[in-house]
Amino acid sequence: VDNKFNKEQQNAFYEILHLPNLNEEQRNAFIQSLKDDPSQSANLLAEAKKLNDAQA
């Protein structure tokens, strides 16, 4: 993981990586967004979790 991520951002990265119901395309999009703007990690994680739950 890129060293410019802080602890919260790293946690978001790993959580998104391991959400079971996202397809690869969705997962990659969230990860790319996280890399583009790490400050949005909490929002991105919340969105990813919502999508993950919706696809459960």
Rank of each mutant, 00 (worst) to 15 (best):
V1Y: 03
V1C: 10
V1W: 01
V1K: 10
V1M: 13
V1T: 11
V1H: 13
V1Q: 08
D2Y: 02
D2P: 05
D2F: 02
D2T: 03
D2W: 02
D2C: 08
D2N: 09
D2Q: 05
N3C: 07
N3D: 15
N3H: 08
N3P: 03
K4C: 13
K4E: 11
K4S: 08
K4W: 11
K4L: 06
K4D: 14
K4M: 15
F5W: 07
F5V: 05
F5C: 03
F5A: 03
N6L: 02
N6E: 15
N6W: 03
N6M: 02
N6V: 02
N6K: 00
N6Q: 01
N6S: 02
N6D: 12
N6T: 04
K7T: 08
K7Y: 12
K7D: 15
K7A: 13
K7H: 13
K7L: 04
E8K: 01
E8V: 00
E8N: 02
E8M: 01
E8W: 03
E8Y: 03
E8A: 01
E8H: 03
E8R: 01
Q9G: 02
Q9F: 08
Q9K: 00
Q9P: 03
Q9V: 08
Q10L: 08
Q10C: 07
Q10T: 03
Q10A: 10
Q10P: 02
Q10W: 12
Q10I: 12
Q10M: 10
N11V: 11
N11T: 09
N11C: 13
N11H: 08
N11D: 10
N11I: 14
A12P: 02
A12M: 04
A12C: 09
A12Y: 03
A12F: 07
A12H: 11
A12I: 14
A12E: 04
F13Q: 11
F13T: 08
F13Y: 14
F13C: 09
Y14I: 10
Y14D: 09
Y14N: 15
Y14F: 11
Y14S: 11
Y14C: 14
Y14V: 05
Y14K: 12
Y14A: 06
E15N: 07
E15K: 05
E15R: 05
E15A: 07
E15H: 13
E15V: 13
E15D: 06
I16D: 00
I16Y: 00
I16M: 08
L17P: 02
L17H: 06
L17Y: 13
L17M: 11
L17W: 11
L17N: 09
L17A: 12
L17F: 05
L17V: 07
H18I: 13
H18T: 13
H18E: 15
H18Q: 14
H18N: 09
H18D: 10
L19R: 00
L19Y: 04
L19T: 01
L19Q: 05
L19W: 01
L19K: 01
P20V: 05
P20N: 10
P20K: 04
P20R: 06
P20I: 09
P20Q: 06
N21P: 00
N21M: 07
N21K: 12
N21Q: 09
N21R: 05
N21E: 04
N21V: 02
L22Y: 00
L22V: 07
L22A: 00
L22R: 00
L22C: 00
L22T: 00
L22E: 00
L22I: 12
L22H: 00
L22D: 00
L22W: 00
N23V: 08
N23Q: 12
N23L: 14
N23W: 11
N23H: 15
N23R: 07
N23C: 10
N23F: 14
E24D: 10
E24C: 15
E24R: 04
E24S: 14
E25N: 15
E25S: 09
E25W: 05
E25Y: 13
Q26P: 00
Q26A: 06
Q26N: 06
Q26G: 01
Q26E: 09
Q26M: 06
R27A: 07
R27M: 08
R27Y: 02
N28S: 13
N28A: 11
N28G: 10
N28Q: 13
N28P: 01
A29K: 13
A29T: 12
A29P: 02
A29M: 14
A29C: 14
A29L: 03
F30V: 03
F30K: 01
F30A: 07
F30I: 03
F30T: 01
F30S: 02
F30Q: 01
F30W: 03
F30G: 00
F30R: 00
F30M: 13
I31P: 00
I31M: 14
I31H: 07
I31E: 05
I31T: 09
Q32N: 11
Q32K: 06
Q32D: 14
Q32M: 12
Q32I: 12
Q32C: 10
Q32R: 07
S33H: 15
S33V: 09
S33G: 11
S33D: 11
S33Q: 12
S33N: 07
L34W: 06
L34N: 01
L34K: 00
L34C: 08
L34G: 02
L34S: 02
L34P: 00
L34D: 00
K35N: 12
K35G: 10
K35W: 07
K35R: 14
K35F: 10
D36F: 08
D36P: 01
D36A: 09
D36V: 02
D37G: 09
D37K: 09
D37Y: 06
D37T: 13
D37L: 12
D37H: 09
D37N: 07
D37P: 00
P38K: 04
P38S: 11
P38M: 09
P38Q: 03
P38F: 04
P38I: 06
P38G: 09
P38L: 07
P38N: 02
P38T: 04
S39G: 12
S39W: 09
S39D: 10
S39Y: 09
S39C: 06
S39E: 15
S39V: 09
S39F: 10
Q40R: 15
Q40L: 11
Q40K: 12
Q40C: 09
Q40D: 12
S41K: 02
S41E: 01
S41W: 10
S41F: 15
A42I: 10
A42C: 15
A42N: 09
N43G: 03
N43H: 07
N43L: 12
N43V: 14
N43M: 12
N43I: 14
N43T: 08
L44Q: 11
L44W: 10
L44G: 01
L44R: 08
L44F: 09
L44P: 01
L44I: 08
L45I: 05
L45Y: 10
L45H: 02
L45E: 04
L45S: 10
L45R: 04
L45M: 06
L45V: 08
A46F: 12
A46T: 14
A46N: 10
A46H: 13
A46W: 11
A46L: 10
E47N: 04
E47G: 06
E47H: 07
E47R: 06
E47M: 06
E47K: 05
E47I: 14
A48I: 02
A48Y: 02
A48W: 01
A48F: 02
A48S: 09
A48L: 02
A48R: 00
K49V: 10
K49P: 00
K49N: 13
K49R: 03
K49G: 05
K50M: 12
K50H: 05
K50F: 14
K50R: 09
K50I: 07
K50C: 12
L51Q: 04
L51S: 07
L51E: 13
N52W: 01
N52M: 03
N52V: 03
N52R: 02
N52Q: 03
D53A: 04
D53W: 03
D53H: 11
D53I: 10
D53K: 13
D53C: 07
A54D: 15
A54T: 15
A54G: 13
A54R: 08
Q55S: 14
Q55N: 13
Q55I: 14
Q55T: 07
Q55M: 09
Q55G: 15
Q55C: 09
Q55Y: 15
A56S: 14
A56T: 15
A56H: 09
